[in-house]
Structures are given as C-alpha cells and as structure tokens.
Simulated assay, not measured.
Amino acid sequence: MPQTIAKVHISFGLGSIPVTVCAATEPHTVPLHQVHEKDGGRIRQKRYCEIENVEVPYSEVVRGYEAPDGRSVVLTKDDLADLPLPTAKSIEVLAFVAGTDIDPLAYDKPYY
C-alpha cells in the first residue's frame, strides 16, 4: 500500500466523507546547492568558490539553483519564505468537472 499523505474529511451541509490521499508517484525534489552569493560559483565541502578558486567564509554562502544552461540562481531567505506552506489543512471545493475535461499534462502531481 502506498504511503498515506493525508486523511481528511470533505464536509458539505450535514454530510461528511472521509478521504485518504496517497501519492501515485515518487517525489522529485529540486536540488539546491550552496553557492557563493557574490558570483554564483558552486561551493564544495571545503567551501571553495569554483570561479575564484578561493575558500569562501560561511557568511558568504547562500542557497542557489543551477539552471539547465549552467547558470546559478541565488535564492534568498525571503524567496524561500514566500513558498506555499505544506501545512495547510483545508481545501475548498469550488466545483466538480468531468475527468475527460482535464488534460493529464496539466497535473503537477498525480494522486489517487
């Protein structure tokens, strides 16, 4: 049996339906690397900047994402703080549509 992500109840009027949500795929995370804030160079275990070939103090190390073209995108704490919270416990159902009306490619993550 797949790992249960959430056990919730869908309530409407006087009715309540218990629902168990399970992931239908394996999770894929975005790999973040430590990079030199000044120039985006990748930081290794010794905290050496690959571009300047110098050791970098930890105070100058920030999070970054390596784009497919090799560029590094520096992410600040504010950038990461603006992400949606995974702890939201409520889902508002606005309408139901036929499954055939939704392009399967539009699903970010399949569930069942």
Rank of each mutant, 00 (worst) to 15 (best):
M1N: 06
M1D: 10
M1I: 06
P2N: 05
P2H: 05
T4A: 09
I5H: 04
I5K: 05
K7E: 13
K7Y: 03
H9R: 09
I10D: 08
I10E: 13
S11Q: 13
F12W: 05
L14V: 07
L14K: 05
L14Q: 10
G15W: 01
G15D: 05
S16E: 15
S16V: 08
I17G: 08
I17Y: 15
I17Q: 14
V21Y: 08
C22A: 12
A23W: 00
T25I: 06
T25N: 13
T25A: 15
T25E: 15
P27L: 07
P27G: 09
P27V: 07
H28C: 07
H28N: 13
T29N: 12
L32P: 00
Q34V: 06
E37L: 05
K38V: 14
D39K: 02
D39C: 12
D39T: 09
G40F: 02
G41A: 04
R42Y: 04
I43R: 01
I43G: 01
R44Q: 05
R44K: 03
R44H: 07
Q45L: 08
Q45T: 15
Q45W: 09
K46F: 08
Y48E: 15
C49W: 00
E50L: 02
E50G: 01
E50P: 04
E52Y: 02
E52C: 07
N53Y: 01
N53E: 08
V54G: 02
E55H: 03
E55F: 00
V56M: 02
V56G: 02
P57T: 10
P57Y: 08
P57A: 13
V61T: 14
V62T: 13
V62H: 04
R63H: 12
Y65E: 07
Y65Q: 08
Y65T: 06
E66F: 11
A67Q: 11
A67I: 01
P68F: 13
D69Y: 09
R71G: 07
R71Q: 15
V73D: 02
V73C: 11
V74K: 09
L75K: 02
L75R: 03
L75G: 05
T76P: 04
T76R: 02
T76I: 02
K77N: 11
D78T: 13
D78F: 03
L80C: 00
L80H: 00
D82H: 05
D82Y: 00
L83R: 05
L83M: 01
P84R: 06
P86G: 03
T87L: 02
T87I: 06
A88E: 12
A88D: 09
A88N: 10
K89H: 12
K89E: 14
S90F: 00
S90H: 05
I91C: 09
I91Y: 08
I91W: 04
E92A: 10
E92K: 10
E92N: 09
E92G: 02
V93N: 03
L94C: 09
L94S: 12
L94N: 11
L94A: 13
L94K: 14
A95T: 13
F96H: 11
F96K: 10
V97L: 06
A98Q: 10
A98I: 00
G99T: 08
G99L: 03
D101W: 01
D101I: 02
I102E: 10
D103N: 14
D103K: 10
P104Y: 12
L105Q: 14
L105T: 14
A106T: 10
A106S: 14
A106E: 12
Y107W: 12
D108L: 09
K109S: 09
K109M: 07
K109Y: 12
Y111W: 11
Y111N: 11
Y111M: 12
Y111L: 15
Y112A: 12
Y112M: 07
